[in-house]
Design a protein around this nucleic acid. Structure first.
Lengths: 195, 195
DNA sequence: TACCCCATGTAATCAGTTACATGATTAT
DNA sequence: ATAATCATGTAACTGATTACATGGGGTA
């Protein structure tokens, strides 16, 4: 009978990548919502944003669907969630489907695209700030890779994603370097703007 | 009196980047919702996704707020929207605020991060597909740059965003090349998975 | 022991996607 | 003249962000 119930759930519940990630982490051990947020930000936060609210909502929905089970309520009504057999099944199904294309939303590029409406010095200032941010992230990725390699606890898949981070940040920094040239040397209409 | 009205609107209306882009395009000439979708996909679609529904909703909201005005209804109730003085004001305010950090959502990276739950050949197959997609995009960007440079009509700001596209795609392809090495050579726990 | 700060969760709002409806145009 | 197709817009749903509420543990 239980079997019947969760087989239905497996068929019915449409797992989004955020929820799937939560199930992924719950494979390792039971976690509360708060802990899941922390783990997720640390392990996938660099290329998959999520927030507390999402986590709690997905957990509630998945509990409803029988993919996870809540343990006894502790202080501040924190509840540890455990993945169920149905949850593992659903996660496996998700991990079997080809992932979709990536989405980038880059407000700074939007500004560049509308650059004719932005004074050049202002754009340059933003560029400096963003440059510093990206350089810091590059450093952080490298540090994480190093410390993972030093401790034996390196998961090579996680290392691979950090490797993407390094490559990406290098590319961004490289483009930042070239941007002043790109926008001042090209042909085209004048950049000044009168609103 | 009209002045009073739109000054209030300027103060009140919180412009998101999508709506701001629409105002940006309307600086050039009046456009209908449909045309705006086409222009936006072409000019910023590569780093700022948007859909018809969003466009129509933002247009309606901005009309409400007095940032745009709808012209006479044509066939299929298409209405050309014109930017108002309040709209220009609001856009200028938006263009004066520092853009936020970018957001990337890359489902394939999520899969890599949970790679221990995914059979290696399956991952390799997805990688091939994605590789082809990114190579195609790289080609497209290069083609667009070339044709923009050949025709004199090159806006150097748009060229700069295409330049980012090229850099980004190269970085992704580069990482794809290295990925098999990254995930097979590293230290760490075995990759096999039994659910 | 009273206060403050942080942990934890919930609710309200906003943005983005998918699915639907319908009126012109074009081709046969 | 009819059917097929595409242009255009709307509505319903899902996902994401922001703002709010509250309870505990530590420190003056």
């Amino acid at each position: 009978m239980a079997c019947q119930v969760w087989e239905m759930a497996v068929a019915t519940f449409r797992l989004n990548p955020t929820a799937a990630s939560l199930l992924g982490f719950l494979h390792e051990r039971p976690l509360t919502g708060w802990e899941l947020v922390r783990v997720a930000l640390e392990r996938i936060g660099d290329f998959w944003s999520l927030t507390r609210s999402q986590v709690y909502r997905e957990l509630a929905a998945m509990e409803q669907a029988g993919l996870v089970e809540a343990g006894p309520t502790g202080p501040r009504q924190r509840r540890p969630y455990t993945i169920t057999a149905a949850g593992r099944e659903t996660f496996a199904a998700w991990a079997g489907a080809e992932p979709g294309p990536e989405a980038i939303r880059f407000p700074l590029l939007l500004m560049v695209a509308f650059g004719r409406h932005v004074p050049a010095e202002r754009l340059a200032g933003w560029l400096r700030n963003h440059r510093a941010d990206h350089a810091a992230r590059l450093d952080r990725y490298r540090g994480e890779i190093r410390s993972m390699e030093e401790s034996g606890a390196a998961d090579r898949f996680v290392l691979a994603t950090l490797g993407f981070g390094v490559t990406y940040e290098q590319a961004v920094l490289d483009w930042f370097e070239r941007l002043p040239t790109l926008i001042s040397s090209g042909a085209g209409p004048p950049s000044s703007d009168r609103d």
